[in-house]
Design a protein around this nucleic acid. Structure first.
Lengths: 347, 347
DNA sequence: CTGAAAGCGCTTACAG
DNA sequence: CTGAAAGCGCTTACAG
């Protein structure tokens, strides 16, 4: 199998192999791509010569000739500096990588830590011909990236649900509305009557869906949907601690909080306890992402496992369908699981 | 600036721009690369035409012609399925991305979740001409990847310290020996006399260095270095819980444990407490990575912050030096910080 | 089953 | 300051 490591840096080309084998470059090229029209004898002979010469196909040259790269681009959100503190991103990336690997795709990741907008990155990937498809890992309301990709009909898939008027967009998501609905029901079920929500960034579709689910449960149970109990902000500790304080200091203090992420929930929890209020006795807390923290934190948190790995792998599968088979408009809803723990009197 | 979003997918080439401008493709190419030999007038005129026509350079074609890609490859370890549970990897990746972005490099990540060995991935990246340089995120003893890259003199940098006979390898690392030395000293300082260590994977250079540091402190303080107190294993919870049990059940039970990672430490902690033994009173615990867990866990953990982001960004800086200026053999040691918390009677 | 030729979209000595 | 030409290493109709 030619598995010995070649030491010299020499670049053997298809031409040299052809010359050595006494055939044309076309034939060598066909051997590389397993073209069935090449005779078995020739194929084997040329394979042997390729091994012997240490030939390795140049992916860039092939990309140029075929106008296909075998690479997909993954767009990480540019919003928060600490995007990776949220376990969703690394986990989803793992799901993507798994399927990509199985299908021989490479992964180019966006490096827009601070510089350019996401749209610029996408343009760079696509118009520079660097990728065959794109995975969008977050979706904002009226996302200009979705709009762009949709308009040029470039293969992509979205983790999340497009909120726009646009049909025919490949996407995979949890049922965020349902998850939040059930979480809120659970809160009510343990006797909470005044439930606040700290719901993530305002411009995310996910945030809006979760608020809808929360609202639905609240109203269904005959409680009042009170917008002064709805908070939005970024996915970090500080946001949690800030709103935690606000909530704990309300005249008519809530007795439960739904939070968009475990880390945010911990921020809130710390702030609340500092004020001498007990979790879960005085205020119950439930959150999302089921991170390690929710399991091992000083007060284990009830948390929704959104199955990020699965979201990633499904998104990659959709993308492959889009690239290789022109599929558009697939929709996959992946299941979530609620883990009930001490922060809502469970465990 | 031509920042309007182009809707049509048309591919405008350098040739078409040239024709429209009434110049040769060479001239257009030179305008693109800011060649100073082109007159200001021509440059401006052609830029305008490029904008107007929506020209965007094809990166693949340029790569082929220049034999340079503007892309670097990052090799994630293939060892553990849950590599991203260890916060080191996402954080270091963030450091890499930051510097890459600033210098206009794209990042190709390895997708070897289960399939091929790391060396195969590296060969694929390099021999397929997909990248200009490689960052190795972990280093094993006698690492064949290092050997390979070194032998073909391909630009790369390593996060970690090469243990081999090889000189001239760009690398960035913490002083793992010193960190573990200080951590062990701290344990001794709070009165612990029989200290075990759960030190990570045996074949990592880092593991060996940490054991050296541990040993040094032990011996310096007149205690006995006892190999039956040295444990090695993968970076997961299970490893921790398994060895935690073993340690808690020793006839002459240790009163302190140094652990290679917070998550592993939590595994050990849980197992120990389940046996009715108190942390830190009976057994103190200190670990590495200063993850969120160490801060918010039910027993806050003393932990070494290895500054993963910095390790990543420095590694990328070294790589750029290697690619663009041929630098070899740079070595950077980044500082660590020990956070003392309740698991060693602190906080 | 195989080859000659044109082409993918750029770059870069070389010449003027 | 600009152009003609060759080349980067592959692929793929077309022809036989």
């Amino acid at each position: 199998m030619g598995s010995e490591i070649l030491i010299k840096k020499s670049t053997v080309t298809i031409k040299e192999v052809a010359k050595r084998a006494g055939v044309s470059p076309s034939t060598v090229s066909r051997v590389i791509s397993n073209n069935p029209r090449i005779s078995k004898a020739t194929t084997e002979r040329i394979r042997a010569i390729m091994d012997e010469m240490g030939y390795y196909p140049n992916a860039i040259a092939r990309s140029l000739a075929k106008n296909m790269t075998g690479t997909i681009g993954v767009i990480l959100p540019t919003t928060s500096e600490d995007v990776f503190l949220n376990p969703f991103f690394p986990e989803a990336l793992r799901g993507i990588a798994k399927i990509a690997s199985k299908n021989n795709y490479d992964i180019l990741i966006s490096t827009n830590i601070d510089k350019k907008g996401e749209l610029k990155i996408i343009e760079n990937f696509i118009r520079g011909s660097k990728v065959d498809g794109i995975i969008l890992m977050s979706n904002k309301l009226d996302d200009e990236c979705i709009e762009y990709l949709y308009n040029i009909d470039f293969p992509f898939s979205l983790i999340g649900t497009p909120n726009t008027h646009l049909e025919n967009i490949n996407h995979v998501d949890n049922d965020n509305l349902l998850a939040t609905y059930e979480l809120t029901k659970h809160m009510i079920c343990i006797g909470r009557k005044r439930i606040a929500i700290i719901a993530g960034e305002e411009n995310l579709t996910m945030t809006q869906n979760r608020i809808q689910g929360y609202k639905k449960a609240i109203e269904e149970e005959g409680l009042v949907f009170d917008t002064s109990l709805v908070f939005m902000g970024s996915f970090d500790e500080k946001t949690g601690s800030q709103y935690g304080k606000v909530i704990a200091n309300m005249k008519d203090m809530p007795d439960g909080i739904i939070v968009a992420d475990d880390l945010v929930a911990y921020g809130a929890l710390m702030a609340i306890e500092e004020l001498g209020i007990k979790v879960p006795e005085d205020i119950a807390i439930a959150s999302f992402n089921n991170s390690i923290l929710s399991k091992y934190g000083n007060i284990p948190l009830t948390s929704v496992d959104i199955n990020s790995v699965e979201l990633g792998s499904k998104a990659m599968e959709l993308l492959i369908d889009a690239i290789e088979r022109g599929v558009r408009g697939s929709r996959i809803i992946t299941p979530f699981t609620i883990f009930k723990r001490r922060s809502t009197m469970g465990g």
